[in-house]
Every structure is written in C-alpha cells, then in structure tokens.
C-alpha cells in the first residue's frame, strides 16, 4: 500500500511552517517548494458565516521524506506543522482517519 499525506484543512492556519521545514530538509532553493500552502481567500456567506481556507499540498519535489522515514522519523512537514493537521501513513490508514472526521480532509500522494 502506498504512503501519503492526510491534511485536515479545516484547521490549517496557513502558517507556512511546512514550506520552510520541507525546504530545509530537501535543501531546496529559495524559490522551490516541496510543500506549498494555497489559500482560498476569505468571503462572507449570505447567512453571515465566514469562509477562509488554507491547504498545504506536496509538490512533485516531495519524496515523503524517504530518508527521515527510513531512519525511523516522520516527514519534516508533519513534524513541524504547528496546527498538527498533517499526518503521514498508508493510504488505508489515512483514509480511515479522514472518513472518521468526515469533512474538510484531503489525502495526497505526491
């Protein structure tokens, strides 16, 4: 079973920690991103409630931190995420986790 990343993007605060942690880990250049934070900008719904989402996704440069994982660790983005909304595991495990929450989740295979 392939491994991937699950993000509970209801609670991604858009802090950019994953981007820099990834760049440090993969020793990427300043313009390169292995994780990238995207924003769906704020808007107010007709009922007065607010919508404003961030979501971090792994780019083609992501290798799911194979060296860290081989050494018994977890991917750098997952470890450093301040909101603790990123998870690493098999797609099966992550799917179960996402379904249990039931909303605003995404699983990525880079």
């Amino acid at each position: 079973m392939a491994n991937g990343l699950y993000i509970d993007f209801e609670f991604c605060s858009g802090c950019h920690s994953c981007e820099i942690a990834c760049r440090n880990e993969l020793e990427l250049g300043i313009t390169d991103f292995g994780m990238k934070v995207l924003e769906d900008k704020p808007r107010q719904n007709p009922d007065g409630s607010w919508h404003w989402d961030y979501i971090a996704y792994p780019t083609e440069l992501c290798n799911l931190c194979e060296d860290r994982v081989a050494a018994g660790g977890i991917p750098a983005c997952v470890q450093h995420c301040q909101a603790k909304v990123l998870y690493y595991g098999t797609i099966e495990e992550l799917t179960a986790q996402m379904l249990e929450k039931g909303s605003k989740g995404a699983i990525f295979i880079p």
Binding site: C15, I20, N24, A76, Q79, H80, C81, Q82
Partner: peptide, 21 residues
Amino acid sequence: KIEGDPEHPITRGSLCPRCLA
C-alpha cells in the same frame, strides 16, 4: 540543521517559520 524538538512538552516538534529560518 535546526529542527523542532519532539520531546518539548508544549511545542512537541512544531516550529514556526522564524525558528525554521
């Protein structure tokens, strides 16, 4: 390399961009 400390009871491995940089 500078990383978060997973054994820290408050931050538990997380770091904000400023310490990551």
